[in-house]
């Protein structure tokens, strides 16, 4: 499957933090033929490994997370579902929003809002507190509680569409677009004679604190890790973002990243003419799985390659396919460049 098509498929799956089953199953079955080993751990991480068969080969870990932000049902009032958040939801996105309640069978719902006709200008200028919002599933109190009991997860009901030239727009591109990137890189590498073992880790629960990657990195004990996640692309109201969509892979530089490895990636991008942009990552926490992986066990040489994305944590996230392709090329070039 092509990169864009795979991204669209992954975007459409429902997998909020802690409830990633359908994403994991899809990727496991997709990578089945390319990997030597496929397994799942106690936190639900999807681990696919390709061995090079050479003694003393290093293990290169590629990571992207499979979970997306979402909601969890906390109860019902008059048949409308109350909910809490799974991850950093932008509460301004919620009024008149369509969602999918992941009950069995799933229920379509709408987060209701007041008609503008009865609101004051003051009221209309304020974001609504999430505890005043409810999901309308068109059921009575009794039916709603039975169909979607407390603890039922919920995601945005949205797919992924083509936008303009060579762009995708949809939900959960953070971080399924990057999951698609490492899957394609893994597939490409699996066909080649390599000097390192490669692991494709599609991790869980990143949005609630890098929990999946923490245990996966411990269990796998990689020598080198390349974390692939999204970063903010510039928008008219967000000039302070450090990267631009369409300008290539964002190679992170900062304390959370091994400097020598970052320099090596930049040199490779220059040599192979792969579009890239350096991105400064201040502080010890990049806000990605690199934070957990760098300090796993006795420490891992870790790089962060980011995909510039606009409108993060909304159902209309936007990415450029060319940036995704650049990251696939860069990862493949890096692994191919490794010597015994």
């Amino acid at each position: 499957m092509e990169l864009a098509e795979l991204t669209k498929c992954l975007s459409g799956l429902a997998g909020p933090s802690g409830f990633e089953e359908s994403v994991r199953e899809y990727i496991s079955s997709y990578l089945h033929h390319a990997a030597d080993e496929i397994r799942t751990d106690a936190l639900g991480n999807m681990i696919a490994i390709k061995r090079c068969g050479k003694p003393g080969a290093k293990l290169i870990l590629l990571d992207a997370h499979m979970d997306e932000i979402g909601f969890i049902v906390t109860g019902a009032k008059d048949g409308f579902l109350s909910f809490g958040m799974l991850g950093g939801v932008d509460q301004r996105m919620l009024p008149a929003r369509e969602v999918m309640v992941l009950s069995d069978p799933p229920l379509y719902g709408v987060i209701d809002t007041m008609p503008p006709h009865v609101l004051t200008a003051e009221e209309k200028s304020k974001a609504i507190e999430p505890d005043k919002l409810f999901i309308d599933v068109g059921l009575t109190q009794e039916e709603a509680l039975k169909a979607a009991p407390q603890g039922t997860p919920v995601v945005y009901a949205a797919g992924c569409d083509d936008l303009g030239q060579g762009q995708l727009c949809g939900k959960a591109l953070d971080d399924r677009a990057c999951a698609a990137v490492i899957i394609k890189a893994f597939e490409r590498l699996a066909d080649q004679e390599l000097n390192a073992d490669v692991c494709c880790l599609v991790s869980t629960q990143e949005e609630v604190g890098h929990r999946g990657a923490t245990v996966a990195a411990f269990g796998l004990e990689p020598d080198i890790a390349i974390v692939v996640d999204v970063t903010h692309g510039k928008t008219p109201d967000g000039r302070e973002a450090l990267t631009d969509c369409g300008k290539g892979a964002a190679i992170g530089i900062g304390p959370n990243i091994n400097t020598a490895l970052a320099r090596q990636l930049i040199a490779l991008a220059e040599e192979k003419k792969i579009p890239y942009q350096p991105e400064a990552v201040p502080g010890g926490n990049s806000g990605t799985n690199a934070h957990a992986i760098q300090v796993a066990r006795t420490g891992v040489v870790t790089a962060l390659i980011s995909l510039p994305l606009k409108y993060m944590h909304t159902p209309v996230e936007v990415v450029h396919i060319s940036d995704m392709e650049a990251i696939v090329d860069l990862i493949a070039a890096y692994v191919e460049s490794l010597e015994v």
């Binding site: 936008l163 928008t235 109201d237 409108y311 936007v318």
Partner: peptide, 22 residues
């Protein structure tokens, strides 16, 4: 033509901006 009404990511907003709509 498909378009989306964008706004800067919640991560880059101040607490004040998150409470008010642009």
């Amino acid at each position: 033509i498909l378009g989306v009404v964008g706004s800067k990511a919640v991560h880059m907003t101040t607490a004040e901006q998150r409470k008010k709509l642009p």
